[in-house]
Design a protein around this nucleic acid. Structure first.
Lengths: 158, 158, 158, 158
DNA sequence: TTTT
DNA sequence: TTTT
C-alpha cells in the first residue's frame, strides 16, 4: 500500500484514574478516559456554550502503561498521540457493537504529562525498557525555577 | 484550567464516492469512508501482515464539501484534518448506539487531495468562497468579513 | 498544486514574556520564545541527558495576539499549532541571513494555554473578532473542581 | 514540570533527489529538500497568489534512510513527521550561522511515500529491518530487542 | 529546486 | 469499500 497515516493528538484531562489490566502473558494494558472541551460564544444568543468530548484511550505499550499507572490520576492533564482503531464486540444479546478507541501501541505513540507533579517521570525514576528512552515518554524538562531565562539572554541570533 | 486539543490527521483512500446530503436549510454535509492501512512483517512467522482501518469522515464545512463533491471519488487519496466526535443514535429497536466520526467543521479542519488530477483545486479553477482558499491552500488572513464562522454556533445537524 | 501540508505542533514553555509589536496599520504581531525539552538515559554511560530546543513563534493572528498579550508570561506552558516559514534578512554587514519561524496566521493555527490561571480566556473575556469564536483560541474547559467524574459515571457505553 | 512536544508534519514534494551521506562509522544520513506550497486568491486584487516554502529534512533513522535512497526521487510526494532542530555552524568567515531542520530520528518519526510507484515498500518487496516495518506501515510491538534506540544517545553528527 |  |  502506498502511504497512509492514522494519527490522533489529544490534549485533555482524565475523567478517572487509569484502569490497568494485564493480558494472560502478563503484559499491561491501560485504559484512560480523556475529556477534551471546547467553548465558544453563540453568535446569535451571545451565550457561552460548551461541549465536552470523551475519548477512550488504550495503551498497549508497556513503558507508557507504567507511566500511566504511576503518574496519572483523575484530573491529570495529558498529551496523547496514537491511532484510531474501531473494534467489534458482542453485547449481551449477541448483537454486534463497535467501539472506536485511540490506541497507543508501538511507534508513533506518545503520552506526556502536562501538569507533572514533582515526582514525574524523567525527574528521577527510570530503569530500562522502551518507555524511558523515548523522548516523549517523560520529559523532565528544564527546571521551572529559573531555567528558561538564562538561555534566552544568550541571545540566539538566528 | 485551560486548554484542550482534539485533532485527527489521516492520509488514506476513499472506499467509495463521497455522499453529499443537505440540511433543511440547504447546507451541504459530506460523508467520506476513508481507509488507512498498515502492513508489517510478523516477528514470529516472518509473514507479511496487513490491517486496514476504516474511518467515517463528516464534513460540515461548506467549502470543503464542495471540494469533496467536485474532486473526490472512490479511490482518491486525501489528507484529512478534523476532530473526533462520538454521537449517539437509536437503532431500530430503540437501543442507544454510538458512532465515532472524524468531523471537519470550522477552523482547524483541512481536506487536501494528494493524487490531484489536472482539474484539481488550486490548479486553476476556483472562484471565491471558502473551499478554494481552503485552509491548506493559503491563509490570506482570516475571512473576518462573513463566511467561515457560521458553522460554529449552529446546532450540529447529525 | 496538488496538496501540501505544513504543520508544526509544539507543547513547551515560554522563555520570556511575549513581545508585542504593531504594524504601521496597527495590527499586532506577537513574538514568543518557546522551549521544548527532551531527556533520555544514555545507553552507554547510563547518565541522564537533556536537550532543549528553542523555537521562534510569530503570531499574526489578531485574536491569538490578544491571548498572548493578556495571558502568557515567561514560564507559561502552551500548545502551539502553526506552520514553518523561513524568512531572509540582512545582517549589519549586508549578508543574507535566514530565520526559520513557526508562524500562526489564518486558519489551522492554534494557541492554547495549558497552565491557565483562573483569569484565562473563555472564562470571561470575549468580544467579537476572530479569536474568541474559535475553539482553540481559549477553552475555559470543564471546571476541575468536580466536573469530570460526574460525566464518567454516566457510563458512556460505546 | 513535565512534558513537551516538538513535532513537524509535512506533505510536500522533493525538489531534488535525496542526498545520502555516511558517518565515519557507516550509518547513513539522508538529506531531503521538501517543498510545500499554498495558493489563495488575493482579497483585494482577486488574483491568485502562491507561496512555496522549502524545508530541510534530515534523516538519521537507518530504515527511513533506506526508503529515501531506494524509493524517493526528485518530484516524489511524501508525508514526513519529525522534529524541529536548529543547529549552529560556522561559515567561511568564522561567523556563527544557524540552520533549522526537520529531523527524523528515533521514535515518533515517519516517512511515507504518497505517490508510490509499483515497486514501493509495503507493496511486496521488503526484507527485514527498520525501514519496511517502518512506523507507518505497522507496529508489531516495540522492537525492544535492540535496533531502534541506538540513535538516541549518540552524538548528533551534523 | 518540487508540485499543480 | 480503498490503496499497494
Amino acid at each position: 500500500m502506498a502511504g497512509s497515516v492514522n494519527k490522533v493528538i489529544l490534549v485533555g484531562n482524565l475523567g478517572a484514574d487509569p484502569e490497568i489490566r494485564r493480558t494472560q502473558d502478563g503484559r499491561p494494558i491501560a485504559n484512560l478516559r480523556v475529556a477534551t472541551s471546547e467553548s465558544w460564544r453563540d453568535r446569535n444568543s451571545g451565550e457561552r456554550r460548551e461541549r465536552t468530548e470523551w475519548h477512550r484511550v488504550v495503551i498497549f505499550n508497556e513503558g507508557l502503561c507504567k507511566i500511566a499507572e504511576q503518574y496519572l490520576r483523575k484530573g491529570s492533564k495529558i498529551y496523547v498521540e496514537g491511532q484510531l482503531q474501531t473494534r467489534k464486540w458482542q453485547d449481551q444479546s449477541g448483537q454486534d457493537r463497535y467501539s472506536t478507541e485511540v490506541v497507543l501501541q508501538g511507534f508513533n505513540s506518545a503520552l506526556t504529562m502536562l501538569d507533572g507533579r514533582s515526582d514525574s517521570p524523567g525527574g528521577g525514576g527510570g530503569g530500562g525498557g522502551f518507555g524511558d528512552t523515548q523522548q516523549d515518554y517523560g520529559q523532565p524538562a528544564p527546571a521551572q525555577e529559573g531555567g528558561f531565562s538564562r538561555d534566552m539572554d544568550d541571545e540566539i541570533p538566528f
